[in-house]
Design a protein around this nucleic acid. Structure first.
Length: 421
RNA sequence: GGAGAGGUGGCCGAGAGGCUGAAGGCAGCCGCCUGCUAAGCGGUUGAAGGGGUAAUACUCUUCCGAGGGUUCGAAUCCCUCCCUCUCCGCCA
């Protein structure tokens, strides 16, 4: 959520930012409604102030057994007017919320302006894609040949975009989770295992609601949302709280299953494990001081990249252009791993600085030493990494001519073997 | 699922329609005192929003789990919801 005051004071800046994101959203109505709301606040406060003083007088008069009926009648009118104002204000608030909660974050000045993923800019490339002396297979062929992923039975049990991991496949997934968590905690991230079903407030805090209801699974009676990423519960850990400056920065890492409807991606990545309704992910989340958040973004991205380096997987890092960034982000780096089966780099991590956008929604604040008032923290998140996609990358990059798959050195202590065959 | 108890400031804990942003205690901060420490004494210490100022000062409104309601006036009365705890049942 943007600060309504900065919207009011710099409407042009916001309009321009929206245009860069290909958003067609009018904010003039919002500004007008907010002005009306402030007028209502002022009128209401004046009347309340009057009521407070007169009510006190009434109390005194009654104590002295004097007549107060004139004042009581007058205050009855004042109270009725206050009720009117309150209800008008509620309407104004609802109208403001309905708009302001759907305005995306403003891109950082360093973010390239562009329309879609074509305009993302590569910032670095690590590792060299391996030369194969045979035709590399897709991960689904490798996995089915090894009998470690069963897509058909996954579909039977649940539906399309569900898979069943089996034997060494299941173990690979588990080994990667442990490996990633250990790698992250060694760098000072605190491990979190959060609720995977969360309430509406929580999922509104990080920005998935109200705009992206279509992307989420939800339960009814009672109503919960299945998290699409651990970012949701973990970023909200300190929602509605005031931290002290010394608490920052805070680093968290969290393994959770993630659930996404994938509405609107029909026909994309229908085969294989790339795009599932349920997948595992190890997430990195940071709370940072505003003046440090961009340094923290670089470090967070480097931490995610380091996992790929340890696993000897070739990758590149791109900075997303304005048109391709997520709703809550000010700046995002995507890390893309090389997949020989597709001869393409594919997203395996997305690292974002949301600045105070989520913190304002979730009311995550901090106090500076010796300063009065509070400020919003900056929140960051990134995958470290998407587990299923990492498994894919290992299968495809480490496949061998005989159909077996080697396990990268760093993973062997977790996997307990050096090959899947 | 059944039966009870309860949610008040950083923490503990009073308050049961007006004098309560909230007694008292603890913790914190600032003084004083004091060989040092401890103790003691005095003062002070929440958040959000608005007005005001160069900035302070000052000032107004709101906040006692959340949301409604009653009343001139609600932490206090009524309704709904949420959460925590205890006992019973069930259960991974």
């Amino acid at each position: 959520m943007l600060d309504i005051r900065s919207i009011r004071e710099n409407p042009e800046l916001v309009k321009e930012a929206l245009k860069k994101r290909n958003e067609d959203l009018s904010i003039d109505g919002l500004i007008a409604t907010e002005a009306k709301k402030r007028a209502l606040i002022q009128e209401g406060e004046k009347l309340r102030s009057e009521r407070n003083t007169v009510s006190e007088e009434i109390g005194k008069l009654k104590k002295e057994k004097k007549d107060a009926s004139v004042q009581v009648a007058e205050m009855k009118k004042v109270s009725d007017r206050i009720k009117e104002i309150d209800s008008e204000m509620r309407e104004a608030d609802e109208s403001i919320d309905s708009i302001i909660l759907t305005i995306p974050n403003i891109p950082h000045e360093s973010v390239p302006v562009g329309k879609d993923e074509e305009d993302n800019v590569e910032v670095r490339r690590r590792g060299t894609p391996r030369e194969f002396d045979f035709e590399p297979l897709n991960h689904w062929d490798i996995a089915e040949n090894l009998d470690i992923i069963d897509f058909n039975r996954g579909a039977k049990l649940a539906g399309s975009r569900f898979a069943l991991m089996k034997g060494m496949g299941a173990k690979l997934e588990r080994a990667l989770i442990g490996f990633m968590l250990d790698s992250n905690t060694a760098k000072g991230y605190t491990e979190i295992f959060p609720p995977i079903l969360v309430n509406r407030d929580t999922i509104t805090g990080t920005g998935q609601l109200p705009k992206f209801e279509m992307d989420l699974f939800r339960t009814s009676d009672p109503e919960f949302y299945l998290i699409p990423t651990a970012e949701v519960p973990v970023t909200n850990i300190y929602a509605d709280e005031i931290l002290s400056e010394n608490d920052l920065p805070m680093y968290f890492t969290s393994y959770t299953p993630c659930f996404r409807r994938e509405a609107g991606s029909h026909g994309k990545d229908t085969r294989g494990l790339i795009r599932q309704h349920q997948f595992n992910k190890v997430e990195l989340v940071k709370y940072a001081l505003p003046e440090k958040s961009y340094d923290e973004l670089e470090k967070l991205t480097a931490d995610a990249e380091e996992i790929l380096q340890k696993l000897e997987l070739p990758y590149r890092t791109v900075v997303l252009c304005t048109g391709d960034m997520g709703f809550a982000a000010s700046k995002t780096y995507d890390i893309e791993v090389w997949l020989p089966g597709q001869q393409k780099y594919r997203e395996i991590s997305s690292c974002s600085n949301c600045e105070d956008f989520q913190a304002r929604r979730a009311k995550i604040r901090f106090k500076r030493e010796g300063k009065k008032g509070t400020e919003f923290v900056h929140t960051l998140n990134g995958s470290g990494l998407a587990v299923g996609r990492t498994a894919i990358a290992i299968l495809e990059n480490f496949q061998q001519k005989d159909g077996s798959v080697a396990i990268p050195d760093a993973l062997r202590p977790y996997f307990g073997a050096d090959i899947i065959k």
